[in-house]
Simulated assay, not measured.
Amino acid sequence: MSTPSLVDLIELGAVQDAQGLQGQIKIRPHAADPVTLLSSKEVWLSLIPRRGAGVCDSHAQALLTLYQVRQAKMHSGTVVMTLDGVTDRDQAEALKGARILVGRDVFPKIDKDSYYWVDLIGCTAVNLQEEVLGEVIDITENGAHGVIAIGDSETKTVKQLVPFVKSVVQNVDLAHKRITLDWQLDW
C-alpha cells in the first residue's frame, strides 16, 4: 500500500504514553467520543510535530507508518490500543508523541448541514457585513453545542469564541474555506 497524502488523513489523537508491558499505547483522543478511533482497523502514526492544517513537506510525508490495530478500548478518558508489531513497552514508549491519523474514507458520510470539525479549521470567518473576523483555529464542545475559536492562525491567538449554532452560522462553504456568521467584530 502506498503512503497516502496528509490531506487524505485526519488526526484523531496523539500517543500519550506506553500502557503496561505488552506494547500497548495510551492515546489522548481529540474527540470526547472517539468512536472512529475505537473502530479503526488500521492507523497511521507520524512522529512529525504538527505544522498546520494538513501542510507538510515530502520528508515528513515519508515518515508515516501504517499499523494494523489488534484492539482498542477506552480506559480513564484515554484510548488504549494494541498495534501489530509493537510487542513490548520499549517499542510503545518509542511512539510517545506520535500523531494518530486515519484515512478520511473511514469516516461515515454526513448530512448536508453537518460537518467534520477538522474541515472547518482553516476556514476564513466573515460576518454578514463581509468583515473578516479571522480564521477558525480550533473547535471545542461545551456540552450544549460546539464553539469555534476565531483568530490568527500564525500565532494561534484567539480573538473570539463563537457558538456554532444555526442562529449564528449562516453559511458554510467548504469549497471556498469560508464561514459566514451573524456576528460582529467587537463582540
Rank of each mutant, 00 (worst) to 15 (best):
Q19V: 02
Q19A: 04
G23C: 01
V7N: 14
E42G: 09
P34A: 05
L38Y: 01
A32H: 03
E42H: 12
A14F: 14
R28I: 00
E11R: 13
Q24D: 05
V35W: 12
S5R: 12
A18I: 00
P4M: 09
A14S: 11
V43L: 10
I10H: 09
D8H: 14
V7Q: 15
E11T: 10
Q22V: 02
L38W: 09
P34I: 11
S39Y: 01
G23Q: 04
E42V: 00
L6F: 06
G13Q: 06
L38H: 05
H30W: 01
D33W: 01
I27D: 02
G20S: 10
V15L: 06
A32R: 12
Q16H: 13
G20A: 01
V15D: 10
A31M: 04
I27Q: 07
Q19H: 13
A31L: 09
E11V: 09
S40Y: 11
V15K: 09
S40V: 13
L12S: 05
E11Q: 14
E11G: 13
L9R: 02
I10R: 15
L37E: 07
A14E: 15
L37K: 07
L12R: 14
I25H: 02
I25K: 12
D8N: 15
E42I: 04
G23V: 01
Q24M: 02
Q16E: 15
G20C: 08
Q24C: 01
A18D: 09
D17K: 04
A31E: 08
K41F: 10
E42R: 14
S40G: 05
T36N: 06
A18C: 00
D8C: 06
A18H: 02
I25N: 05
P29C: 01
I27R: 02
K41L: 11
I27C: 03
G20I: 01
R28Q: 06
L6P: 03
E11L: 15
D33N: 08
K41G: 14
A32P: 04
L21S: 09
K41M: 12
G13T: 05
S5M: 10
A14R: 15
S40H: 06
L38Q: 03
S5G: 01
I27P: 02
A31Q: 06
R28N: 11
